[in-house]
Write a protein that binds this DNA or RNA. Structure first.
Lengths: 203, 203
DNA sequence: GACAAAAGTCAACGGCTGTTGGCAAACATG
DNA sequence: CATGTTTGCCAACAGCCGTTGACTTTTGTC
């Protein structure tokens, strides 16, 4: 409509299909996040996107391909170098909570978590996110072995909160104000991040 | 329905059906734990128990009934009153780790966790376990409101470890010796259990 | 307007699912 | 042996699933 009709496809020209492609992807993300991989059907996604199920196959090849496209996660971890050492735990924790508490289009990690518990490929994908984003960030502050160890501890606490608060809705976690939760948990993250850790057994 | 029909049967007398009943239950537990609720089919359970699928229906009514029967969890939390206050965190943590690390028939909580992420009923059941066993245990040491708060924090860390180590198999968690993990995490549990917690915002 | 590619619709396939009811063997009891 | 109950297998149902291929409509280019 905007560009001239005679011009060949410019790089910025958006195809008509890109719209439905995005619609499918949005619907898929919502479904995967709410119901997990198994209980999300291509038919339901197509219905939510108001198109035919076969379109999903055309654009994404298979249900697995759709999931792969929908589950791209970027943690967008902040650069902790600019934060005073004593406040890094709280800063990191606030970052996660803010992501989850915020607008409902951003929590792809919940999507991934819900599916990874039963789907092996989703688990590997979550493992990759953990490795490439969290471990790498910590590697800038310490050796690779210690980074892996600290990252594991942080992941256990952060994912545990997400699990209990957003998936299981445990009463002691789900009904607390975000700020209180941050206050309670920040010392833990701080210790995992910068505190002194006990010596490991030989390895 | 479950009561014996004839009064002549001695109390210790075991029916023939009790054997297959137990076989079904064992197979179901293994399947539910390994694949979660959705990917466990009654047919697969029946095949593993070497009986007909219709038998499962006869004994447990439905797939949901089977799951309910298979997912009975008793955390068997130790009485922390007999443990020195400073070691209670470690004691509680060791208890959980020992349960999971031990023989492969005991980890019903992993079963429940894997299913609770997608199945609402399983989630409610896990919520009940959390409430009736963990919160109640802590209530003996503090007021009910504080107990709920501390229980939530403990659950987030403990379930987070179970999630990362046994379900997702994150490299920083899954490949560490149990003793090392206990050493790293014990201070956290200790703080959640007995440490001083920041003031909460009004509620 | 003619024509080709893209975008979308429709109906169907084979497979797996939970669940049901009928019927055959095993068994205990008179 | 005759009886009724328990225990079990078999075949089938209705439904949803991912996926496919043929067909029609829209769109863009000459």
């Amino acid at each position: 409509m905007t560009a001239g009709t005679s011009a060949t496809a410019a790089p910025g020209r958006e195809r008509k299909s890109d719209r439905t492609r995005a619609a499918i992807l949005n619907a898929a993300r919502a479904q995967f996040q709410q119901h997990g991989y198994d209980r999300t059907s291509i038919r339901a996604v197509a219905a939510a996107a108001e198109i035919d199920p076969s379109m999903v196959m055309r654009y994404f090849g298979s249900k697995e391909g759709l999931f792969a496209a929908a589950a791209h996660v970027d943690l967008q971890l902040p650069n902790l170098g600019g934060v005073p050492v004593r406040q890094r735990g709280q800063a990191l924790l606030e970052h996660f909570i803010r992501r989850w508490e915020g607008d409902l289009s951003d929590d792809v990690l919940v999507l991934l978590l819900r599916s990874a518990v039963t789907d092996e490929r989703a688990a590997q994908r979550l493992q990759a996110v953990f490795q490439e984003q969290l471990v790498d960030t910590l590697s800038r502050m310490s050796g690779p072995e210690e980074a892996l160890r600290r990252a594991g501890l942080i992941a256990s606490q952060v994912l545990g909160v997400a699990l209990g608060r957003y998936l299981l809705r445990l009463p002691g976690l789900a009904d607390r104000p975000p700020a209180d939760l941050v206050a309670d948990l920040a010392p833990t993250i701080q210790r995992y991040l910068t505190g002194r850790l006990p010596a490991t057994t030989k390895q």
